[in-house]
Write a protein that binds this DNA or RNA. Structure first.
Length: 726
DNA sequence: GTAGGAAAATTGGCCAATGCT
DNA sequence: CTAGCATTGGCCAATTTTCCT
């Protein structure tokens, strides 16, 4: 089906797999006439990723595909001139004949594969934004040609071309070139006599870009797209369910990004004319070098990439339909098996274990890692809590090397998916021992690491850093649903494809603990909200749990005793148990008090994330009694500074009483706190100044000073008459 | 190449002033 | 003329991004 004519000498056609039930309803509109197609192989029912179904078609989940990977191919009008595209994940090229192809004049100047390495295979962090931009810029053409073809554009813009074992050709660049040209015709009304060899890249000049962009960027810093920007979720109509399959009516990229799309020599030169930091430019060299340099021997074997495919010639003219539409239909309870040609999309949930096979992150990354911007140098690889690097291991399979994928995912409450504002970044250097390669899958940068039996199917992740993309660059993408601001936590996601005897691949996935990637959060002062116990033996060694915020395994906890004049009389650092720490809690061993005394000693402790980053000091009591039966629970609210907190009583034989400032039914409790066997629960009047729950030990005959707690009234938990404060 | 620190720039919330109905 | 509501712009703290060392 021919749907448009963008240039006098360029007739293009989008062809899809043969008819059948369609996924989102739109593809049916672009089905080719059956008469133009050769006989079809037996139709296989295939499942579609739910995220790619329109809201109104959630019940239509299957389509019939003639090929494992329905594809769009751009070729020249004259079939004699076209260059066959490489396959994708399964040697699909073999199956291509004269159908499902779109012919374009193969003009070297239009896109010279040798000079224009794929933007999607870029090593450059900056080029990543460019990659997105190229995808974006290419998409709008479908907006203009036919609204129903928007979905077709999504397909084309989905995953880059991937070799059977993951090697990438270039999709984005070719699409970009194609799309920008059409975009120009729509928005810039170029002369019909424009040379077909005219570079679409250069045709989008910085000036034209600025004139089209809602707000130009006068400096290197991003500016608000329309003055004072409101929350980007303000217009839900512009948003799609998947930020990675989105389109923009205009190239939503900066001039730098657009230029950087396609780093041919001329463009690299032009790029250098722009105000681009040297650090950023330098990555181009790395990128080109990466593309041209021989790969590591082991990985080369592993990837098994045909040389001609590596050259990315025909591949650059080949548009791959996302694999979402083409994998085997899983049934309930079925294993996560996929055809080699149809890996699951990156936002597809996968188990970490099936049968004997398990993918496990043996060593977790530490809870924060400052990501670097494109304008910065690398900030190194992700570190582990213990100081080394994360360690991933595949157990239950060691027959042959398998490919491990690593990407940066989200850490919010929603489904794990590639993070829009962070990308994995390959770290190189003398200290890096793990061989890896960067790829682009579904517009997400992915590291490929080989797990080999010789290494017990383990890999130390010392080659993965985290790149931060500028919020403005990402949020300007039409359809982007996430906001970058305060969206600074990520997870490191690992995937592996385990070959099965029947030829399928068993896909497993595991993700790390959340990793905070912003500098600021790392700098913020730690804050202790609760701790227990509130007293301990002077002998030390007792376990203590702090909860609050801005904590980490790298935090230190200092215990100090100060004299009346404020001088430090004693100081000791607690031993933090890093494996049991998180951003909101620290587990430590209380240090021994080395002074001989028979009386309790009031000391203080604070959490430190470095100099100038200390929490407020909290009071703590060291008692010369070894036996410590009772656990106590304290809450520290802002309205109740530590010095005014209730002084705990220390008796080994007193019953508990629990004071709560919230109704009992909503009273929070510590899951680690031992049950209170003799407790009498109290609730307070609603105007209590306290905001947290308290458990207070009380001597049986001792008056509880409620006034010091900011309480006016307490009632027994069983509803009996209240105790009035006098 | 890494990393820490901090300055500069941007963003978003709040609120008063202003304009319109 | 007044009340109610929406819009606009300034202020400021929080956050992001860039730069320096």
């Amino acid at each position: 089906m021919s749907f448009g004519k963008c240039r006098d000498d360029l007739d293009f056609t989008l062809l899809f797999g043969e008819e059948g039930r369609q996924t989102a309803g739109s593809l049916s509109d672009v089905r080719p006439p059956s008469s133009l197609l050769p006989p079809l192989p037996p139709v296989a029912e295939q499942q579609v990723h739910p995220s790619h179904l329109s809201e109104n078609n959630q019940d239509v989940a299957y389509y019939h595909g003639a090929f494992h990977c329905p594809s769009i191919q751009i070729t020249s009008i004259a079939p004699n001139n076209h260059v066959e595209a490489g396959g994708a994940w399964g040697g699909v090229s073999d199956t291509f004949g004269g159908r499902d192809q779109l012919y374009l004049p193969f003009d070297p100047s239009y896109r010279d594969p040798a000079l224009c390495p794929s933007p999607c295979s870029s090593l450059s962090s900056r080029s990543w934004v460019s990659d997105l931009s190229s995808c974006e810029s290419s998409s709008h053409v479908y907006d203009d040609v036919d609204g129903d073809l928007r979905d077709a554009a999504r397909l084309a813009l989905g995953p880059p071309l991937v070799s059977p074992l993951g090697s990438l050709g270039s999709l984005g660049g070719g699409v970009a070139a194609f799309g920008v040209e059409l975009w120009q015709q729509k928005y810039q009304h170029p002369s019909p006599q424009q040379s077909p060899s005219h570079s679409p890249r250069t045709s989008v000049t910085e000036e034209s870009w600025l004139s089209r962009r809602p707000t130009s960027r006068p400096s290197s810093r991003p500016t608000s797209p329309c003055g004072k920007r409101r929350h980007s979720s303000a217009d839900p109509s512009l948003r799609s369910s998947s930020p990675h399959l989105t389109m923009s009516p205009i190239p939503a990229c900066s001039p730098r990004g657009c230029v950087a799309d396609d780093p041919g020599p001329a463009l690299v030169s032009a790029y250098q004319d722009l105000d681009v930091p040297l650090k950023t430019r330098r990555t181009w060299g790395g990128q080109l070098g990466f593309l041209n340099a021989p790969t590591d021997e082991g990985l080369e074997t592993f990837l098994n990439v045909p040389e001609e495919e590596e050259q990315a010639t025909a591949a650059e003219l080949f548009l791959q339909v996302p694999s979402h539409f083409s994998w085997s239909k899983p049934k309930p309870g079925n294993p996560p098996l996929f055809r080699p040609s149809s890996p699951p999309p990156l936002d597809w949930p996968l188990p970490n274990q099936y049968d004997q096979c398990e993918l496990k992150l043996e060593v977790q990354p530490r809870s924060f890692h400052r990501a670097h911007y494109e304008t910065e140098g690398s900030r190194g690889s992700i570190k582990a809590l213990t100081g080394g690097h994360p360690l991933i291991k595949l157990s239950g399979y060691a027959e042959q090397p398998v490919r491990l994928l690593l990407f940066i995912g989200t850490a919010d409450e929603r489904n794990l998916r590639p993070h829009s504002f962070y990308q994995v970044h390959r770290v190189t250097g003398k200290t890096v021992s793990t061989v890896c390669q960067e790829r682009i899958l579904e517009c997400t940068k992915v590291l490929e690491i080989l797990l080999v039996p010789e290494n017990n199917m383990c890999a130390s992740i010392d080659c993965a850093g985290i790149l931060k993309l500028r919020n403005a660059d990402i949020e300007l993408k039409k359809g982007e649903t996430d906001v970058g601001r305060k969206n600074t936590r990520v997870k490191v996601v690992f995937r592996v494809a385990v070959p099965q005897p029947d030829g399928h691949m068993l896909w497993l996935q595991t993700a790390s603990v959340p990793v905070e990637c912003s500098q600021r959060s790392g700098q913020e002062l730690p804050h202790v909200e609760r701790f227990r116990p509130s007293s301990a033996s002077m002998d030390g060694g007792e376990e203590m749990i702090l909860t609050g915020s801005n904590m980490s395994a790298q935090s230190t906890v200092m215990f100090v005793e100060k004299g009346p004049d404020g001088r430090s009389l004693w100081e000791a650092e607690a031993r933090v148990l890093p494996q049991r720490c998180s951003t909101s809690s620290i587990v430590l061993e209380i240090p021994p008090y080395n002074k001989a005394t028979s009386r309790p000693v009031q000391v203080q402790f604070y959490v430190s994330n470095g100099k100038k980053r200390r929490s407020l000091a909290q009071s703590f009591t060291l008692v010369p009694v070894v036996k410590q039966e009772c656990w106590e629970q304290h809450s520290i609210s802002d309205s109740l500074p530590p010095q005014s907190a209730p002084t705990p009583h220390h008796s080994s034989s007193v019953p508990y009483q629990t004071l709560s400032t919230v109704p009992p039914q909503s009273q929070t409790s510590w899951d680690l706190c031992p049950p209170l066997n003799t407790s009498t629960a109290f609730s307070t009047s609603a105007d209590s100044q306290l905001g947290h729950t308290m458990s207070i030990k009380q001597e049986p005959e001792e008056r509880l000073n409620l006034g010091s707690l900011g309480l006016q009234e307490i009632t027994l938990d069983d509803g009996k008459k209240p105790y009035q404060l006098r």
